[in-house]
């Protein structure tokens, strides 16, 4: 019997980077349940195609750099699924693939993969295709028309303005509150089911995979902006309701802002980052050219993160009682 001289610790860890990424993947997969139940297999096809594109891009980059291929940390899949969730269901399947390719090949891999990305790759990919094909990103099909979507082929279906677009035009969206909670309105694949989103967020916070400070900060800032400066003539609470539930604010606050790599590392810094991102998202909605530009806001907020990190001193923790050894 030969005994090894292995390094500590000798117990199996429960959390690793790949298990955290798998938690996020699980939460994202749950978001697909409602669209699949309602509109058939197209969301699944879209997700599968994008995931394959992500993994292929990752492998291609590894080959280009002549490094060993390692996709075990699942981070590229998370990027891919986030992109799918932000797509309209009637978008051609090459559109999320283009976003994923940009995200992996330009925003993630050249910086040194997971742990080194200064900008959220999914946000970068979305920003890229928003600039190139804005009409395709923001033309959502009408879920109440009852049309069946083809699984793989491009679809020409009746489109409807999303609540975010209606708000942008200064009108009040005409949607029942119940439909709004269950996501029966024109919008991105995964960002409409508000109740499912809340459940997924709760799951991630309880698993400590995502930080609730960021999401809370972002939603608070968004709500305050919506209450103080409503875009439509209505009561502050109504304005908050429509602003938080329309577009992809909630989705971005739960899944994109909480990416630990691109967010600040101290508790106070995270709150600050969330607030900043919330304000930026609302400003993009109000003054931006598109009906919403949450990903642009996230990229801008990411750019500020190093400053927040060095501004907020994290060397000591506050309110600690330390005994002397």
């Amino acid at each position: 019997m030969t005994l090894l001289n292995a390094k500590t610790p000798y117990l199996k860890k429960e959390t690793s980077v790949s298990s955290m990424m798998r938690d996020t993947l699980t939460a994202l997969a749950f978001l697909l349940v409602l669209p699949v139940a309602r509109y058939g297999a197209r969301p699944l096809a879209m997700a599968a195609v994008t995931l394959v594109a992500c993994v292929l891009c990752e492998i291609a980059w590894s080959l280009l750099q002549s490094r060993s291929i390692n996709t075990s940390d699942c981070s590229s899949m998370v990027t891919g699924l986030i992109i799918v969730m932000l797509m309209p269901l009637n978008a051609p399947l090459w559109l999320p693939c283009a976003a994923a390719a940009f995200a992996i090949l330009v925003a993630k891999k050249p910086f040194g993969s997971t742990g080194h990305t200064p900008f959220n790759p999914a946000a970068a990919g979305m920003a890229f295709i928003t600039l190139l094909w804005p009409q395709r990103i923001f033309s959502y099909f009408n879920p109440s028309a009852g049309e069946v979507l083809p699984v793989f082929a491009d679809c020409n279906v009746e489109t409807a303005p999303s609540p975010a677009a209606v708000l942008k035009n200064g009108l009040k969206p005409d949607i029942l509150p119940f439909d709004m909670l269950w996501g029966v309105f024109a919008g991105p694949v995964g960002a409409t089911g508000i109740l499912v989103l809340c459940a997924c967020g709760l799951y991630l916070f309880l698993k400590r995979t995502a930080n609730w400070e960021i999401t809370a900060g972002c939603l608070f800032a968004g709500a305050v902006m919506a209450a103080l400066w409503p875009r439509i003539a209505c009561a502050p609470l109504t304005s908050i309701k429509y602003e938080l539930m329309s577009g992809s604010l909630l989705f971005c606050a739960v899944f994109m802002l909480t990416d630990p790599v691109t967010s600040p590392r101290t508790g106070f810094g995270r709150v600050l980052y969330g607030l900043l991102a919330g304000v930026l998202i609302m400003l993009f909605r109000r003054y931006g050219a598109y009906e919403q530009g949450a990903w642009f806001a996230i990229l801008l907020a990411n750019a500020v993160v190093p400053q927040i990190n060095s501004l907020v001193c994290g060397d000591r923790r506050w309110g600690e009682e330390l005994y002397e050894e």
Partner: peptide
């Protein structure tokens, strides 16, 4: 143990778990 646990090392992702775990107020990632 029959098999030594094998850890893959990734770069720090800034999750703050180490700082939360430390009973002595150190911020290990820093």
């Amino acid at each position: 143990l029959k098999k030594a646990p094998n850890y893959k090392e990734y770069p720090c992702i800034g999750c703050q778990r180490c700082a939360r775990a430390c009973p002595r107020g150190i911020v290990p990632w820093k």
